[in-house]
Computed example of a mutant assay.
Amino acid sequence: MIRGLYTSAWSMLANQKKLDVITNNMANVNTTAYKKDTVVYQSFPEILTRRINDTQSPTNPSAVVGTMELSSDVGEVYTYYTQGQMVQTGDRYDLAIKDDNTGEVASPAFFTVGVINPQDNTVQEFYTKNGSFSLDANNQLVTGDGYAVLGKKGPITLKTGDFTVDSKGNIMQNGAVVDTLRIAQFADSTQLRKLGNNLVMNNGGEVAEFSGTVIQGFDEQSNVNVIDEMVDMITVMRAYEANQKVLQAQDGTLEKAVNEIGLVR
């Protein structure tokens, strides 16, 4: 009976984690280039079940009566790096990457940004799909959070005036190539880790040659489908409530066992 309480409670915790992920997806449905997450469950390992004080049985000296699994737990939070819809904005500072999805496995590509580490003032490289850029006071191309957009020569500095970006990320101004966007394409997206602020880091994945297309004057929308998220939320809530009722039923039975059966003389 106590085992049943643990099983129901642990399932409720797992469902709560998935509900948190769904809520975060819905909160970022309008965040530029946001990539949705999902929870992947995994079962606890099977364990042998034995009868207590039954090791002397001639037919079953081990007292083993089978195996059981206590519950499921959150194995990982998986991110879908599928392409969001491209929306034309007409703003020359808005850039988007159209991934090359001709292969069997999607290989998402990202803009590279430099983030200053406040502890030692070193510049760390991270990646983002959000191409809503602007110019700062030093005429450097930066993200909405002020992180420097990196090119092949380092932080990209532009002169006052118009500029164009071709499909390969070459930035041209006054008829000359100023710099080329440093775009990282990853063959294995499972090695990427979200950091917040629409940034990801590479956890040792292989960087492939960029085979996508850069388009200027476009933003990539999030790949969150609100209808799908609402359906998942309803399913999770029902599973949570079912475990809650099972837990309450077991708790009521345990209460009777303690308060009523224990009084019988």
Rank of each mutant, 00 (worst) to 15 (best):
residue 1 M to K: 08
residue 1 M to Q: 11
residue 5 L to V: 09
residue 14 A to P: 01
residue 15 N to A: 03
residue 16 Q to P: 03
residue 16 Q to L: 09
residue 17 K to D: 05
residue 18 K to T: 06
residue 20 D to E: 14
residue 21 V to A: 01
residue 23 T to W: 01
residue 23 T to R: 03
residue 24 N to R: 09
residue 24 N to A: 13
residue 25 N to F: 02
residue 28 N to W: 10
residue 29 V to L: 15
residue 30 N to G: 01
residue 34 Y to G: 03
residue 34 Y to H: 07
residue 34 Y to V: 04
residue 39 V to S: 10
residue 41 Y to S: 09
residue 43 S to Q: 11
residue 43 S to V: 03
residue 45 P to Y: 02
residue 46 E to M: 08
residue 47 I to M: 12
residue 50 R to F: 15
residue 50 R to M: 12
residue 51 R to T: 15
residue 51 R to W: 00
residue 52 I to R: 14
residue 53 N to S: 14
residue 53 N to W: 08
residue 54 D to Y: 13
residue 55 T to V: 13
residue 59 T to S: 14
residue 63 A to T: 09
residue 64 V to L: 15
residue 64 V to G: 05
residue 67 T to I: 08
residue 71 S to G: 06
residue 71 S to D: 12
residue 72 S to W: 00
residue 72 S to N: 13
residue 73 D to I: 14
residue 75 G to E: 09
residue 75 G to M: 09
residue 75 G to N: 11
residue 77 V to T: 14
residue 81 Y to D: 10
residue 82 T to E: 15
residue 82 T to I: 05
residue 85 Q to N: 13
residue 86 M to C: 10
residue 86 M to H: 10
residue 86 M to R: 06
residue 89 T to K: 04
residue 90 G to L: 04
residue 91 D to G: 00
residue 92 R to A: 12
residue 94 D to E: 02
residue 99 D to A: 14
residue 100 D to N: 15
residue 101 N to W: 00
residue 101 N to P: 05
residue 103 G to K: 14
residue 103 G to W: 04
residue 105 V to K: 12
residue 109 A to E: 09
residue 110 F to Y: 06
residue 112 T to L: 09
residue 114 G to T: 05
residue 115 V to R: 04
residue 119 Q to M: 12
residue 121 N to H: 11
residue 125 E to R: 13
residue 126 F to W: 04
residue 127 Y to H: 01
residue 127 Y to I: 02
residue 127 Y to P: 00
residue 128 T to D: 06
residue 129 K to C: 11
residue 132 S to T: 12
residue 135 L to M: 11
residue 137 A to W: 00
residue 137 A to T: 09
residue 137 A to G: 06
residue 138 N to T: 07
residue 141 L to Y: 01
residue 149 V to S: 07
residue 152 K to L: 12
residue 153 K to R: 09
residue 156 I to P: 03
residue 157 T to K: 14
residue 157 T to F: 04
residue 159 K to H: 06
residue 163 F to G: 06
residue 164 T to G: 08
residue 165 V to E: 03
residue 165 V to S: 04
residue 166 D to G: 03
residue 170 N to P: 00
residue 174 N to Q: 14
residue 179 D to K: 06
residue 180 T to W: 03
residue 181 L to P: 07
residue 181 L to Y: 10
residue 182 R to Y: 10
residue 184 A to R: 04
residue 187 A to D: 07
residue 188 D to T: 05
residue 189 S to Q: 13
residue 192 L to K: 01
residue 192 L to D: 01
residue 193 R to E: 14
residue 199 L to W: 04
residue 208 A to Y: 08
residue 208 A to T: 10
residue 211 S to N: 02
residue 219 D to N: 15
residue 221 Q to G: 12
residue 221 Q to I: 00
residue 223 N to I: 08
residue 230 M to S: 05
residue 230 M to P: 00
residue 231 V to S: 07
residue 232 D to R: 08
residue 235 T to Y: 00
residue 242 A to M: 10
residue 243 N to M: 04
residue 245 K to C: 02
residue 245 K to V: 01
residue 247 L to K: 05
residue 249 A to I: 13
residue 249 A to V: 14
residue 252 G to D: 13
residue 254 L to N: 02
residue 255 E to A: 15
residue 257 A to T: 08
residue 261 I to G: 00
residue 263 L to N: 11
residue 264 V to R: 02
residue 265 R to M: 01
